[in-house]
């Protein structure tokens, strides 16, 4: 046996390519939906009214407190188990029919999961808004909503970038569990190749490399974004400090 059989990889490139597209679609759409939901829910999360913040806290507690794989299996196999759901599928109900598709189930699980984490990231950044900025906004006569819209949210969404980049990368890696519900993502392709050629080393080394490259690109994107939007928080250069003194 060779140390690394390239033939295994080259003959499976189309399958890996389709797997890559699947991974990108899954993580991309889940992250977009999760983020869109997280912004208003984060505002609710920091509300002083328990009736507003409580349900959001319960939601994030549940989704951060259980593994994403468990959530995915619950949605996919759980949904398929109920008689009324099966009946709805046979009747062709337009909404419930979506839960028959593994892609949609994975999207729901991933979207809800990343949304929960993103809420806490944004809420944390909002709580860390310097008091002086809020006092200044009040002194300017801004209403609570205006202060949220002009001061708190823009600042929090910038300061969340470093921790959000972690969430995005974890989401990309986490999407590897999609193969548990028959989706052929990068990991699913690797599993197929592995079982066809009995070559776990080749299949998973290649899959790992693909994830590595994707992560590298994401890190680069976030570095660029931080350079653009967080530059005001970076330490000043030594020469400037001297001038100031």
């Amino acid at each position: 046996m060779e140390l690394f059989d390239f033939q295994v990889i080259t003959s499976s490139l189309p399958e890996f390519w389709r797997g890559l597209l699947m991974t990108l679609q899954l993580t991309g759409i889940a992250l977009l939906c999760g983020f869109a939901g997280a912004v208003p829910l984060a505002v609710a999360r920091v509300s002083k009214n328990r009736w507003v913040s409580g349900p959001v806290a319960a939601y994030t507690y549940f989704f951060r407190g259980t593994p994403m794989l468990v959530q995915l299996l619950l949605i996919y196999y759980g949904a398929g188990q109920w008689q009324w759901m099966q009946a709805a599928w046979e009747a062709g109900h337009p909404v419930w029919l979506l839960f028959r598709e593994p892609f949609f189930c994975a999207l729901v699980a991933f979207g809800l999961n990343t949304c929960a984490y993103t809420i806490e990231i944004i809420a944390g950044a909002m709580r860390n808004t310097p008091h002086g900025e809020i006092e200044a906004a009040k002194a300017m006569g801004m209403s609570r909503f205006k202060a949220l819209q002009r001061i708190v949210l823009p600042s929090a969404l910038r300061r969340m970038l470093p921790s959000y980049s972690n969430e995005v990368i974890l989401m990309l890696q986490g999407s590897a569990i999609a193969s548990a519900v028959t989706l052929v993502d990068i990991t699913g392709a690797a599993r197929n190749v592995y079982s066809r050629h009995f070559a776990p080393f080749e299949a998973f080394v290649f899959a790992g490399l693909v994830y590595l490259v994707l992560t590298f690109l994401l890190v680069g994107m976030f570095k660029y974004a931080e350079g653009r939007w967080l530059v005001h928080l970076a330490p000043r250069k030594a020469t400037k400090r001297k001038e100031a003194a």
Binding site: G80, Q81, M85, R100, A180, T182, R191
Partner: peptide, 16 residues
């Protein structure tokens, strides 16, 4: 493709 045979039967029964 399923990792386990049981999972295929589950999806056969559910109508997937």
């Amino acid at each position: 493709r399923y990792a386990k045979q049981d999972e295929a039967y589950l999806d056969l029964k559910s109508g997937r």
